[in-house]
Design a protein around this nucleic acid. Structure first.
Lengths: 357, 357
DNA sequence: TTGAAAGCGTTACCAA
DNA sequence: TTGGTAACGCTTTCAA
């Protein structure tokens, strides 16, 4: 029923090969034939059958994209970034939301491989002990780029945030604002959480500040239900003595939950306790207390990942893996604002710290 | 380089056809052959070439999904709903974010058709004058389902919200809470906005309430930058005399912008003016003033759309278009709470209205 | 500049 | 229960 090259060829008394060449802009076709073919293509609204083309060229012009959770604007934005970058090059994006579930993710990747995608962008939930899939991807010679989450021990292309840097940025900010008893509600067992934790720990020690017992709260098994988890985490922190004067939260959702717990306990924010998250969710600014955070520029992460993937797909030689860090930037809002009057004190303290380092 | 059926056949001294049948679970294969084949398939980690299969079967096992904006959780959730429903059936989802741009959307649909998707789910930005693409989809005999937005005059499968009902629900709620001077900040030229508007207008007139001049604000050309638009819209409303005592906003983002404008003007919410939006964005509850809204159950919309599409794809006879409305539900939060003391007054007024109708 | 023909990796049909 | 063979709609190579 759909129109084929054969139909056009017959109509025009040319060969199929000629039509094929015209459609792909080959030079060795007379102007006249070319125009006749193109006219007929327009008239019939002909669309080449990409599956047939793929069968012979071995390329599908599809890239697979696996994300844990589209509802998280961070990943939605990565998806948009990837799509915007690859569409002009003629690629389509096959989306697989893994729901933060390792088994489902593996199934998804297998399914994408069976569909013969030309490349993969993966925000993976998998840990270092679950890397068999990546071997299988390599076997098929399908290039892939990890985004956001790196997998320790896996040599792979990566585009994302320097999470240790994030931890440093945030902790320095809190210290500079005069906080000394800084706690951390950490995230799940992923490179993102461990990086942020490391940055925090290192910075605290660099400034000679103690991390008291109970100041690192850890209960998140996964990346979902962050708000609830932040709420409970903060309840734990409120029971610690001495009480923290600032809480660095793994992400904005956790920070929001923690903030809630604090407000409900009658604590003033800012003033008594400062809060800061990571992600810069679109609504973090609209909250009861606008939330300080770190913006990771997720659209750029998607864009860079796609760019890197395109390079890998276009050239068939294999390079060694590339790591790209997209700069993150601190966004200071009310939740970590200075307590009134604390400015000079804080400034002096900061100076002292700096010289001490 | 990748393994083919031919390789397996040769290894086992059987024919390619036999292997093919085993892989698709045909009954007429001896147990022994079946097991030998399956063992070898496992050993070699063989993956059938779906592009080759598609070429002969004419089915790609891909569905196209066009959404205006993934960052809007409403559409992200639709995407997840679609994906969850079709994956178990072996389909993959090809995603195309149109960025709320009609021209881009058409390109996207064309691209999906060229990739030979078996069906389409479309949250379309197109208006009644831009329906040529749909004709072209029909020509290719590709079934499609519109979601969220209907196109006047286009006979097509549809899954979404009954927006007129939403308008009624919201307006009745505001009236019941004692508001009389109810204004509306409407949305862009889409079925969603006109439905909500109609529901509002009808309900006001049903209760004998006037819609004063200037009470319907309209400036949104598109669905983006809602917050800013809501802010400006509210500024207009603040200049109207008499000032509204409630504002029904096309969606949550607009409501949030409007709320901001009101608070900034020193107005008490709730108390002086009530606000309500539509969408139930995940953060609407966390706002400075938790926002009343209407939940549309977007995941269910995606799910039902995919279900309907699957039915259409599995059977090759064409049915007449189906329209499915997924029930929406009012969520009352602080922004439209009753003013203290207004309860009895309001109740009496409501009774009076009801009997009057 | 054009045409003919051989593949690409499957499925599907018909014989054996 | 199996094998052989002709499609499927394109690209690509080689000859004309």
């Amino acid at each position: 029923m759909p129109i084929r090259m054969k139909d056009i060829a017959k109509d025009l008394n040319v060969s199929v090969g000629t039509v094929s060449k015209v459609l792909r802009g080959h030079a060795d076709i007379s102007l006249e034939t070319r125009e006749r073919v193109l006219r007929r293509v327009k008239e019939l609204n002909y669309r080449p059958n990409l599956t047939a083309r793929s069968l012979v060229t071995g390329r599908t012009y599809m890239v697979g994209l696996v994300v844990p959770d589209l509802l998280h604007p961070f990943f939605a934005q990565i998806a948009e970034g990837v799509a915007r970058r690859v569409h002009p090059k003629g690629y389509n994006v096959v989306l697989f939301p893994s729901n933060e579930d390792a088994e489902l993710e593996v199934e998804g990747i297998e399914s994408l491989l069976t569909h013969r995608v030309d490349g993969l962008v993966l925000a993976s939930t998998l840990g270092p002990t679950q890397c068999d899939v990546f071997r299988r991807i390599d076997e098929q010679k399908v290039p892939y780029v990890l985004v956001d989450r790196e997998i320790p021990g896996l040599q792979a292309n990566f585009v994302g945030t320097d999470n240790e840097r994030v931890g440093v940025l945030v902790t320095e900010h809190l210290i500079q604002r005069g906080n000394r008893r800084i706690a951390h509600i950490r995230g799940p067992e992923l490179s993102t959480a461990s990086g942020r934790l490391t940055g925090y720990v290192n910075t605290m020690s660099r400034f000679g500040l103690p991390i008291r017992s109970g100041y690192i709260v850890n209960a998140a098994v996964t990346d979902v239900r962050g708000e609830e988890y932040g709420f409970r985490g903060m309840q734990q922190l409120l029971a610690v003595d001495p009480r923290p004067d600032a809480v660095f939260c793994y992400n904005d959702l956790i920070a929001y939950g923690a903030l809630q717990a604090a407000l409900r306990a009658g604590i003033k924010v800012p003033g008594d306790i400062s809060f800061i998250g990571v992600s810069n969710l679109p609504y973090s600014e609209m909250l009861r207390v606008p939330l300080s955070t770190v913006d990771q520029d997720s659209q750029a992460i998607g864009d860079r990942a796609a760019k890197l993937l395109l390079r890998r797909m276009e050239s068939n030689n294999s390079f060694r893996p590339t790591r790209i860090f997209v700069p993150a930037r601190l966004i200071v809002r009310d939740s970590s604002a200075l307590c009134p009057g604390a400015e000079e004190a804080s400034h002096a303290a900061w100076e002292a710290m700096q010289s001490r380092v």
